[in-house]
Every structure is written in structure tokens, then in C-alpha cells.
Design a protein around this nucleic acid. Structure first.
Lengths: 344, 344
DNA sequence: AAGGCCAATCGAAGCGCTTCGAGACCGGGC
DNA sequence: GCCCGGTCTCGAAGCGCTTCGATTGGCCTT
């Protein structure tokens, strides 16, 4: 394996000159640059990452911490990871994958061994212990998700409160007055995971503002859970004409259950989902939904991190504005009439 | 940040002694060892990963290459990743995440810059160009998946041929004679992805051996695709009494479509799925299925890699034996009688 | 013609760790 | 009393790179 010294010898220059050709940190004459470049190619030279990290004290590596649980919003996490990796590569960074079972220890380990220059955290709780670890470790970080107190932290997330509001708004325009919000699993709320809480608040606030009769029901990802929750809703609140669904896993079961209960979508019941567009396109009828731009979250997180590391910016909370796409799962509420546009 | 030299000074020993305490490569007296340990803790010392990599020429990092497409068997990939990361950590390794858009370049880059000591490849094609890149780069690797010619390579995979056979066997025992295999998307077969081809072969061979009338239909992940494929099967082969389904994404649509077509599962049509158990548990009725042990694949891949790196073993193909779990989606074929056990 | 400035290049000093050869010390065998 | 073999420790030499003066010419000023 060729080293920088080999290249320097071959090109007849000093090692430092090769280094400057590579980094561009000092000017090098066109002639020399070309000669060095040729030697690099001829010798098939690749700088040694470890040596570089040691000499420059920058590893050119980001750490991405993902939740361990293989059950929760998996496709979303995968998309985030893909966004992070591809964007990081554009900045010359590689990505280290950590799971949450190492918890704050992982953060400390990676930071204090200089394995990574910065960290991206996901699955942020309202009061997240890892934030403290990040502060103490003195390593740059970006959160995908927003904790209760984001002061001084860089965060990226979908504006879930606004997403919730959009759902309610869409439904009220269609004349729905009795709505059920089928949310994430109980445990998510107990852990105070930010996005779930914010969605709920957004929906509640919007419902209150518009006089919508709203009920919130957490729901696990299984068929049985969906069946139980739906049965209870239909029994206790038979006038329910619309559902907002956040737990993407139960959307297919929910739709067959409704069909079996003799309630067709969207004639009897409208459904708005909070899920990736791809999923919304896969059902029949297609789902009116607020998109979950997972890959963009990853991309934006890296952008933010780069700005933070290079320009010293920090403390920015980026909320991506959600968009509601009307598809086939929502319709005018039964027994109501279309409102004239001017009345909106 | 404390360095090894700081620790040595604090403990009153030579730097090399500290190093030996850390690595255990030479014996150190109990007294010294303790003194050094105390200093390490007091100074909160963590070895610098880059310096270590440079001096020892081992990075203690594995690279995991995942497909970029966010659509294909995503939960499976995520599980594999989790298995890889947690197992790698047990061996003191971190995991670098690469996407396939870098392709063979990524392999070369990581290998020749010594960023990683070994590579785990996923989504293996029968003739996979990256295998050549791995050979040329001279880096240890393990494939999750098996190419056409695995000579000299370490591979881990589910025994898909056997999995296919199990499905057919289960169905024939229940008296089914006309079976449709709804497979992965067309493109997968065109790319000759190993697992899809092997499953198909296993099913075909088993069907031929038992005189089962089999048809294979590739199918995309969308509702429409599922509807089209199912309609065609029911039209062309109305006697079909059983389905084997590999593309997990279309299982929910398939089940509602059957219901809408007035064919109940399992009374009129039996379904066997090739999918993670978790998914098989989420439908109603629950699916008789062959499990996809994704996390185990990741774990085994790392085990294999460690054995390869430490003991110099190589050329092993580990096929995990599949298991079929009978749940509610399969039943005796209509118009047939239960076979006495002795006739099996 | 001397002085000054800039661009281009060099050499040396690390970065923090591992590893190897060698020294110091101790007890046992002759 | 001396040599031998172990055990424990030390010092020095790198690993391959970056970075910071310092040096060298060439060209423009004055």
C-alpha cells in the first residue's frame, strides 16, 4: 500500500507538497499539482484514514444513533439513515451506526475516542438523557426530533403540530364534527417521545378551535389492538365519521376491519393518515395523508451539522412544513353539504 | 483530553506499560496494573481511535453495505443492521454504514484508506460485481446472501430453497394440487438476486416432485399490482386453492382482495408467506409462514467475519435452516380429506 | 541596483499509540 | 557463588499524515 512519502518520492517533491495538493490548503503550481496527481494515480495512493485523523484531529466521521427496537417506524428510520449517509458522503464524511442500547455510553465512547466528529441523534424524548451526555462530551450534535427545551441545540423535525392541525382542518372542511385520533402505542406517550406529543397537541388545539368532538386512542401495532380500538370507538361514539391515524402499521388492518363492519371508506368513514407517501399509495382507496419526509430529515440533519461545525452556527430548530395530499380516503361527511369555497 | 502519556506519568510507569495493561499482550504485575487502572479512571482516559489505527494498522471497524432503495425488504435490512451492530460491539468493533450507490468504489475507498478492517455485503446478486472489488481490495468480507459461485467466499443466508420446499410440502400435505407462487417484483428476478431465484427453484423442484400444478407470478409492491396478479390467477386458474407469497408488502392487500372476491382464507384459499414472524402475527387470520430470521443473519455474519479474521478460516457458506410455523391461513384443501399421518 | 513582496516549496516537528529488543531483578539449580 | 530462565518494565523507533515556520526565486518598485 502506497504512502504519502512514496508519492512524494515518485513525484520528486516534499511530502508536505503532496499533502497540500490533496487538501488545497496552500497554493501549489499547476505543473507540480499535475505531476503529483499523476503519481497518486500511478501508485494508486489512498490516504490512511487513521493517520489523517491523528494528525488533523478530525476523523471525518459522523455517528448516527438509531433506536434498537426493530418494530417502531422502521421504514422511516431506514430512510433517515439513507438520507444521512448519502448527504454525509457529499461532504466527505462516513457514517458510524450506533444503536441505542449503548445509550449515553455510546456517545461518550465515540466522542472521547475521537472516532466521530459529530453525532446525529434520533428518537428524541421530551426530556432526553442523551442530550446531557452530548453536552458533557463536548461534541457537536444534531437531533432529529425536538426535546422539551431545545435551547442551544440544533434540531430538525417535521412540524408535527402543524401536521395535526392540517388533518383536522381538512376534515372540518369536509363537514366532519366527530373525529377519532388513533395514535401511536401507549408506550410512546409514556416515554414522552416528542413527535407523538406534538401531533396530539396540534390535533387537540385545532379540534378545540373548531369545535370538533375529538377522542384520542393510543394503539399498538397488532391486528387485535386495531380491532379493539376501532370496536370501542364505534361503540362508544357511533357518530364518528372520521379517523386520523398515526401508527402506520395498523392502517391495512383498520381498513379491512372497517370493510367488515360494513363501513366503507370514504363514504361512511374518512381516514387521514400521517405516514410516508409511499405507504399512502399502497392501499385502496389511496390514503389522504400528511407526508413523512424521512429522507429529507436525514439530509437536513447533516446540512445543519456541517453548518454548525464549519460556521459555528448553532441553536437552530428546523421544522419542515408538512403537506397534506388529498387522495381517496376522505370525503364529505355523510349528511353534510359541501361548503361554498368563500366560507372556508 | 488525556493521552496515554498523561496516564503513564500519573501512574509513574512507561507509556508502553500502560499500553500493555490496556491490551493484555504482555504480563503486567497486579500492583502496576491496578495503579494504571486507577490513573486511567482518574484522568478519564480514552485511547484515541485514530492513533490506535495508525500504530496497530487495525481500525476496529466493520463496514456494512446496504441497498439504497428504500422500498425493498426494508424491515429486514434494518433488522440485519441491528444484528450486525450489536454483535460487532461485543467484539469491540464499530460499524460504518455505506449505501450501495457508492457501489464498488465504496469498497475500494474503505479498504484502501484502512477505514474498515472488513466488509459485510448485503443484497447479493448471483453474479455480483462487488465480489471482484472485494477480492482486488484484499479485504476480508462476508456476504449476506449467496452468489452463483461462492468458492472461497464466506456467506450467510437463510436456506431459501429449503424454505420454498417447506411451503410446498405443507400445502401438499393439506391436499392442495393447484398452487400459485406470488413472488418478488419482476426487477428482482431480472437482477438475479440470489434469494429470489433460490426460493423459486426450491418451490419448482418440490412442486415437480409432488406433481403439484404450479404457476409463478412476480408482483410489485403496490395494491394495483397485487390486484392485477390475483385477478389473473383466479381467472386463468380458477381451481387454485393455495398461494405462496414472498413479497411481504402485498400481503395485506392480497387478503382484503380475496375477501372482496368472496374467497375466504383459509376455507377457500390457503396462504403461506415467506416473511418475518412479526408480520405474520399482524394479520387476521395470522399467517402460516416461513420465518425470515433477519437479525440472526446479521449476528452470524459478524461471527463468521471474526472467525475469518482471527482464525484465518474462510470459504464457509452458512445456510440457516428455515422453519415453517403453522398459523391460521392454511387449511385442508376444499374437497379433500385429511391424510392419515402414516401416508405422509 | 537594492529592497520588498508574493508564490511555491521544503524540512522538521509532532499527533497518540503499538511493538520490539533489551535491561533489571529474582529465585532455583549446580 | 555463579549462571540460567522467568517475569516485569523501560525506551526508542516507528505508523502515515498535517501543519507551521523558513527558504528560495522571480518580479515589481523605487
Amino acid at each position: 500500500m502506497a504512502t504519502l512519502a512514496d508519492v512524494a518520492r515518485h513525484a520528486g517533491v516534499a511530502a508536505s507538497t503532496v499533502s497540500y495538493v490533496l487538501s488545497g490548503k496552500r497554493s501549489v503550481s499547476e505543473a507540480t499539482r499535475r505531476r503529483v496527481q499523476r503519481s497518486i494515480e500511478l501508485l494508486n495512493y489512498h490516504p490512511h484514514a487513521g493517520a489523517r485523523a491523528l494528525a488533523s484531529s478530525r476523523a471525518n466521521v459522523l455517528a448516527l444513533i438509531v433506536p434498537l427496537r426493530g418494530d417502531l417506524y422502521v421504514p422511516v428510520m431506514m430512510q433517515i439513515a439513507i438520507g444521512v449517509v448519502t448527504t454525509a458522503r457529499q461532504f466527505g464524511y462516513d457514517v458510524l451506526l450506533l444503536t441505542n442500547d449503548e445509550g449515553s455510553d455510546g456517545i461518550r465512547r465515540v466522542a472521547s475516542s475521537s472516532r466521530a466528529d459529530a453525532i446525529i441523534l434520533t428518537d428524541i424524548g421530551m426530556e432526553d438523557g442523551r442530550i446531557d451526555a452530548v453536552r458533557k462530551a463536548g461534541i457537536d450534535a444534531v437531533l432529529i426530533g425536538v426535546p422539551a427545551d431545545p435551547a442551544g441545540l440544533d434540531c430538525v423535525d417535521l412540524d408535527f403540530a402543524e401536521a395535526g392541525r392540517l388533518c383536522v382542518e381538512h376534515l372540518t372542511r369536509l363537514g366532519h364534527r366527530t373525529v377519532a385520533f388513533i395514535g401511536e402505542a401507549e408506550g410512546i406517550y409514556r416515554r414522552h417521545v416528542g413527535f407523538a406529543e406534538r401531533t396530539l397537541r396540534g390535533i387537540r388545539a385545532a379540534a378545540a378551535a373548531r369545535g370538533v368532538d375529538l377522542v384520542h386512542r393510543p394503539c399498538e401495532g397488532s391486528y387485535e389492538a386495531a380491532a379493539g380500538v376501532l370496536a370501542r370507538i364505534l361503540e362508544e361514539r357511533p357518530h364518528t365519521t372520521a379517523l386520523i391515524v398515526q401508527n402506520e402499521a395498523i392502517i391495512p388492518p383498520l381498513m379491512s376491519l372497517l370493510r367488515m363492519a360494513g363501513r366503507t371508506v370514504p363514504e361512511h368513514v374518512s381516514i387521514v393518515a400521517l405516514c410516508p407517501d409511499q405507504l399512502a399509495e399502497q392501499t385502496s382507496p389511496r390514503l389522504t395523508s400528511v407526508n413523512m419526509p424521512a429522507q429529507e430529515l436525514g439530509t437536513r440533519a447533516v446540512d445543519l451539522l456541517m453548518r454548525r461545525m464549519n460556521d459555528g452556527d448553532s441553536g437552530e430548530v428546523v421544522l419542515i412544513p408538512p403537506g397534506l395530499t388529498v387522495r381517496g380516503s376522505t370525503a364529505q361527511a355523510p349528511g353534510t353539504e359541501e361548503q361554498p369555497v368563500s366560507a372556508l
